[in-house]
Design a protein around this nucleic acid. Sequence first.
DNA 1: ACGATCACG
DNA 2: GACGTACGTGATCGTA
Length: 948
Amino acid sequence: MPDQQHLYLVDGSSYIFRAYHRLPPLTDPEGTPVGAVYGYTTMLWKLAEDLDKADGPTHLAVILDKDSQSFRNEIYPEYKANRPDPPEDLVPQFPLIRDATRAFSLPCIEEQGLEADDLIATYARAAQREGWNVTIVSSDKDLMQLVGEVDGPNGPARIDMLDTMKSQRIYIEEVEDKFGVKPELVGDVLALMGDSVDNIPGIYGIGPKTASKLIAEHGSLTAALDAAEYMKKSKLKERLLENRADAEMSRVLVTLKEDCDLPEPLDDFKLDGVPPEPLAAFLEKHGFTSLLRRLDAGSGSPDRPNNLNPEKAQTKGDAGTEEGNSQPLPEMPAVDRSAYETVQTMDRLLSWIERAEAAHEVAVDTETSSLDAMRAELVGVSLALGPNEACYIPLGHGGSDMFAERPEQVDREAALAALKPLLESDAVTKIFQNGKYDLNVLARYGIEVSPIEDTMIVSFALDAGRGQDGIGGGHGMDELSERHLGHTPIAFKEVCGTGKKQIPFGEVPLDKATEYAAEDADVTWRLYQHLKPRLSVEGGTRIYERVDRPLIPVVAGMEREGIKVDRARLAKLSEEFAQETARLEDEIHEAAGQEFTVGSPKQLGDILFEKLGYKGGKKGKSGQYSTDQSVLERLAGEGADIAKLVLEWRQLTKLKSTYTDALQQAINPDTGRVHTSYSLVGAQTGRLSSTDPNLQNIPIRTAIGRQIREAFVPESGNVLLAADYSQIELRLAAHMADVETLKEAFANGEDIHARTATEMFGEVTRDTRARAKTINFAILYGISRWGLAGRLEVEPDEAQEMIDTYFKRFPGIQRYIMETLETVRERGYSQTLFGRKTWFPRINSKNQAERQGSERAAINAPIQGTSADIIKRAMVRMLPALREEGLDNVRMLLQVHDELVFELPEGDVEKASPIIERVMAEAARPAVELAVPLGVEIGTGASWDAAH
DNA sequence: ACGATCACG
DNA sequence: GACGTACGTGATCGTA
């Protein structure tokens, strides 16, 4: 019996578009854009790696679109007529896709007058008739029609799909999940819903939901259309009856042609390995050096000299500044997952613990049932002592299904009791990646881990701001591993799946779980060896050891404390907001003369500027009218009542959905409190950010919003205490730019905006003070004359005069800006007073908008970042200072950039307040002696609102 | 998945 | 010669 053949058909055209949008705009050494090509190359690479695996490809071909004309255009001239031209920097990449394919020595099929989809369908069916299995590498929903299996000459022959970007196999079940019908009926669903990208009409007003419901109910498109006349009167019925012809034509358009002539016979697609030479030439030419390295490693050829910059494929606008990532990799063997041990007996566990104690350094990772550390149950722990020297200790696998057998494991209680001394031992450093999470989980099991190191935080101290717009600059483990070790760890979703079919980690079989979990510890250990030495070389030690690392357990503690919210009060507010919103919605519809979705800026824009004919509508780059607050306020000022109503409606719906509803959801059932999660690497400047829920943007500026703050309350017998730095960023600007006038004003405790008004306009009125305040902030943010003009509603010339006056009155500011920019241009990064770096890879970009954006951010970063450093230092010292004075019941709950929120017994307020104030006011010392005092304002009350 | 909008410092 | 204009975040909604 012959081995099962398996044909892979790669939908090259659709892949390149997706890769283009997902990847950064890389260019090769000659300046040709290659981002999409890079994505395509890595995908082929991955497929080629599967060559020898069970169910891997035996045959493979790449199918491309030759041109967009096909038989479909004869049926329907508008087919794909509204496709925009591909982006300019994608066009030169099309021919490179063919080069890449050739470099892998793979066949590349394209045919005049045939679309790739039809060729794929034809080949897939032909192979299936031969009894082969087929995998279509694509995520195009049209192709999902083909999924399924038939009886071939040697048993069932199946067609499935592979979405390489999501690492997802698509088989019958996945198609049914997406469309609600079997693959054979997908075409019927598509015919009803249409496709705006291909300009297939479908039936207007029918989307994916209605389409699959109709087809599932009636069994086919024809049956659904026939049934329309018996439906009860509705919009849907009308549309079905009226547009039957459109739907039927759409059905033809989405049908794949399965009987094209085959340009090449199937047997020509046979794979026999990838000859390395042409591939190496291709990778070298385009600067894909990380792949080149892997090719060398794989083929056992001698190492190339290390003069190749590992990050040669530079991103656009890269200043070519210091490349902190280009240190030679330490000598380490490649990751070998088969070397990991599954620890299933106390004996083996004790042996690992003993070795960890001897090593004085161990990487640790916990596996749990949830991403939310406050709800997560511990499922296992992994340890790593060296490269490939790692183990996984399952503690909570199986057992959720009472019929399934629970694999052999060490008893959880006993294992934790054995691990506790190690994890708490002063003599052993525990290395984590994002240790705050593990600290929280373990703390809930009674283990206070210390001392710790954290590779994520090290990476942040070294590389904050590197990478662009979140691409390639992150500090997550997978990214760090890719970047520094050239290794791709197993993705979580590969182990647990995703979406509805996601299983908890505790259900993962032990062999697979060990590969994943032990690898995480192994990678963490390797990353630490790689990153830690860079700290001292690159000047990151101070910020890491003195600020960010000690902050980890402090913030972890704050997250575990949580804050009490008054559910009943929020519910009542929700109810009020709902009623008021409904009333406003009616009024808005009345004013508009029709019903529409108020929450849709698109529909609202059309109503305001087309139907009602208001003037001055401005369309943004998306081609729709802007309807943001400033626009609506202008209209309201011109007497448009509807604009006023919409503003009110927006405020209320925002408050309800984002706060009063969401906060009730966020209450932890075990603790009865809300536990946010702070990101220690969220903001490039060094600030924290807060998620799930975000407690750093609770309303305060309006009376109606402040009601939400009233729902944040202390436990009985306690009060909330809020301590704010007053004007900290302006104070720091005064210090850093060395502005005498401002320093003096702060020293004298003056109202700084009023003082600015005096200097700028000669007198203090409500108006001049407000303008002065705007200008003060504008300067901190590196504003332009046009920006300031917009804010103050004056002409740019006048704004420029104000900026000039400001610089004249406050000499030092301009110099600060110039010097900061010069340094950043030269070094590539800015620094805070405490040495925190933020990188600006686009500071020397040739793209003006990009460059100026970086310049503004670079002016602001040292100030915002220094402020972040200071409050972080205060947080680290706060609880020890309070405990030292015997204040054991003061709890630090929240941080909001320049504010700390505490909960404490009423009786402790008097004693605690001056300590809190002192710790915050002195937080810069002794590292930095500021030329201005740091003002701290403290309030207390029976709610967060009242504490202000 | 992304843009628009709006909540905060 | 035109562009697009204040820094840093996160959540929600509608739309593609």
